[in-house]
């Protein structure tokens, strides 16, 4: 790392788990999370020269969030029918060891994934990516008051979903 600017490899190695976690909580599945992480790292690779030392996690969270929102907009414009996976390139299922770590909060992850994205994104950025309301507002291009409202309503919806699921 020179002048506080990490190399692409350092970002992937040191922040890969953070990036993947945010992507997974936003997208709700491994396949889309992998797409998001790959695209995010591609942008990191292209944009590192312009990166100004600061909150690297904030920068990464912003990149992956914008990619997620772009993807959501594209899907709304034209629903895709994915082509069959190329068996030579398809990423194999997550190993069982990785799955076991997700079993316990599976219902919570499902409830999170079921939240409308307007609420899910700020909740994930706040509670998973540990971003401040100000940072979230900047990333989403909305007022802080909107972030505050969406986080609260998102948590309330999440609570309702979990409660209904339990009963």
């Amino acid at each position: 790392m020179a002048d506080g600017i990490p190399t692409w490899e350092e970002v992937a190695r040191d922040y890969g788990r953070f990036l993947y976690t945010v992507a997974y909580r936003l997208a709700g599945n491994d396949d889309d999370a992998q797409d998001l992480v790959q695209e995010a790292l591609l942008r990191v690779r292209r944009g590192l020269e312009r990166y100004e030392p600061g909150s690297l996690e904030g920068w990464l969270a912003r990149i992956v969030t914008n990619l997620f929102l772009d993807d959501m907009r594209r899907r709304k414009r034209r629903p895709t029918s994915a082509l069959p996976d190329d068996p030579d390139r398809v990423v194999p299922p997550t190993p069982a060891a990785d799955e076991s770590s997700r079993e316990l909060p599976a219902h919570l992850q499902e409830a999170l994934a079921a939240l409308p994205e307007d609420f899910r994104v700020p909740v994930v950025l706040c509670d998973v990516a540990d971003q401040s309301y100000e940072q979230i507002a900047s990333t989403l291009g909305v007022p802080v008051g909107t972030v505050r409202s969406r986080i609260h309503r998102g948590r309330r919806l999440l609570r309702t979903t979990l409660t209904e699921g339990a009963s």
Binding site: G16, R17, F18, Y20, T21, Y24, R25, D30, A33, Q34, V37, V91, P92, P93, T94, P95, D98, S101, R102, P105, L108, Q109, L112, V123, D127, V128, H152, R155, R156, L158, R159, L162
Partner: peptide
Amino acid sequence: VRDTRDAVRRLPAVDGP
């Protein structure tokens, strides 16, 4: 709201394959 927030914050980090 606190319980819900804390539950989300306790979700484990996720490693890709």
